[in-house]
Simulated assay, not measured.
Amino acid sequence: MDRALPEQIARAMAESESVEPDQLGISLEDYVSTDAIRDLVRHDSDSWRLRFETPNHVVAVTADNQVIVDGEPVRTLS
């Protein structure tokens, strides 16, 4: 799952715009450390939430594996 996390988050952002991830026009790594996301997902605690902003979205990734884009749950990390 770790390698796919940034891709899953980008896909959630793209789904919120009804486009493909390569049409977002941004690189996720320019706005958040993908290593930090991986570290949090592996963390034992179940009470964390990571929030970051891109030019078009506010994105949150939660301890229960949810990706929330602009306040709407879009995807569950697998």
Results as ranks from 00 to 15, higher is better:
Asp39Gln: 14
Asp44Asn: 11
Leu77Ala: 07
Glu15Thr: 09
Arg49Thr: 01
Ser47Pro: 01
Met1Arg: 06
Glu53Leu: 11
Ala63Cys: 05
Glu7Phe: 12
His43Ile: 08
Ser18Asn: 14
Leu77Tyr: 03
Val19Gly: 07
Thr54Leu: 00
Ser18Gln: 15
Glu7Lys: 12
Ala4Met: 11
Val59Met: 05
Leu5Met: 08
Ile37Asn: 06
Gln23His: 12
Gln8Tyr: 09
His57Met: 07
Asp2His: 11
Asp39Met: 13
Arg49Cys: 09
Ala10Thr: 14
Ala14Pro: 04
Trp48Phe: 13
Glu72Ser: 11
Ser78Pro: 14
Val59Asn: 06
Met13Tyr: 05
Ala14Trp: 08
Asp64Asn: 15
Tyr31Pro: 06
Arg3Ala: 13
Arg42Thr: 00
Gln66Ala: 11
Ser27Asp: 03
Met1Leu: 05
His43Pro: 00
Val67Lys: 01
Ser27Arg: 15
Glu17Phe: 03
Ile26Asn: 01
Ser78Lys: 13
Asp44His: 12
Glu17Trp: 03
Val59Glu: 03
Asp70Tyr: 07
Tyr31Cys: 04
Leu50Asn: 11
Arg38Asp: 08
Ala4Gln: 12
Leu5Ala: 10
Asp44Arg: 15
His57Pro: 03
Glu7Leu: 12
Ala36Asp: 10
Ser16Trp: 10
Arg49Asp: 10
Met13His: 07
Asp2Val: 02
Ser33Lys: 00
Thr34Cys: 14
Val74Cys: 04
Arg51Ser: 09
Arg51Gly: 03
Thr54Trp: 01
Ala14Arg: 11
Ile9Leu: 10
Gly71Leu: 08
Leu50Lys: 15
Met13Val: 07
Gln23Pro: 05
Tyr31Glu: 01
Asp44Ser: 14
Ala4Asp: 05
Arg11Ala: 14
Asp46Pro: 03
Val41Gln: 00
Val19Arg: 12
Ser16Tyr: 10
Ala60Cys: 12
His43Ala: 15
Ala60Ser: 15
Pro73Ala: 10
